[in-house]
Design a protein around this nucleic acid. Structure first.
Lengths: 136, 136
DNA sequence: TTACGCCCTGTACCATAGTACGAAGTCAAG
DNA sequence: CTTGACTTCGTACTATGGTACAGGGCGTAA
């Protein structure tokens, strides 16, 4: 069984060494055994754990949520429904963000359409719309 | 001409007093004149300036971007096109965020669909998909 | 005049997700 | 055995957008 140093783990998982230490402080990865010298000895599959975190992050989970997700695993009797439920909640969360961004985009498009791009900024309809039409 | 104290301005603009001081530190609102006592004296239209900031924030601009937007006003000869350009960039920015969120949502939906919600978490297809199918 | 509420300053703190750095110890190659 | 790369720890710093608080000064009404 090979074992990895922090640096090797970092390289394989494609993250910064400090990120690994940070995850350990956060309790997202367990403290690995140490050599006499104090060097950490990570098992091979620590790479998979880091990648779990990274994939979940890409899917919009925060580190806190990921930690909760990982904690569920500790008790294999936890019903799978709990995990599905978090996923569904996250989907709703993302739908809310999508709605909000679409609203924003619509408003910005209206501003952009109102502005020819010609003339001095003093007459800019975009700034006027944002600020009322006063000059401070 | 009425003039406002920090607290009055905060109340009218519907923000925290500390937020106003924070904006002043950031250079987002100019330092107002003071009374003998040191009390700030805001002109009435400071309310509009705060609201400009708040509206722009709602539209997805960061304080830094808002500051740049406000700085454009200082020289009324700045062409309006500059403002339009920033707006267009921000629209593209938001479109990018929308694409990203849609990708995430799709991936999460696939995960959620793969999971019946029944059975123990040890067999959960969601966690398996995130982590590879290993048990740490 | 005293009491209460506001205002002033500077600084520290919150969450989020890391990154950077110094000082010291360790490991491996030459 | 030395050198250079790597590891350890603790702490401080980054960016973002504020919030909180202590210790003092000010303002006004009763």
């Amino acid at each position: 069984m090979t074992s990895l140093t922090t640096g090797q783990l970092a390289k394989r998982a494609n993250v910064n060494v400090e990120t690994i230490r940070y995850y350990e402080r956060r309790g997202i990865i367990p403290e690995p055994p140490r050599r006499e010298s104090g060097y950490r000895q990570y098992p091979d599959d620590a790479v998979a754990r880091i990648q779990f975190v990274k994939r979940a992050q890409e899917l919009g989970f925060t580190l806190k949520e990921i930690q909760e997700l990982l904690n569920l695993r500790v008790d294999p009797e936890t019903p799978c429904a709990v995990v599905k439920n978090r996923t569904d909640l996250k989907i709703m969360d993302i739908e809310e963000k999508l709605r909000s961004l679409k609203r924003i985009k619509k408003a910005l498009n209206q501003l952009a359409a109102s502005c020819s791009g010609r003339g001095p900024v003093g007459d800019c309809p975009i700034l006027q719309a944002l600020g009322g039409d006063r000059t401070w």
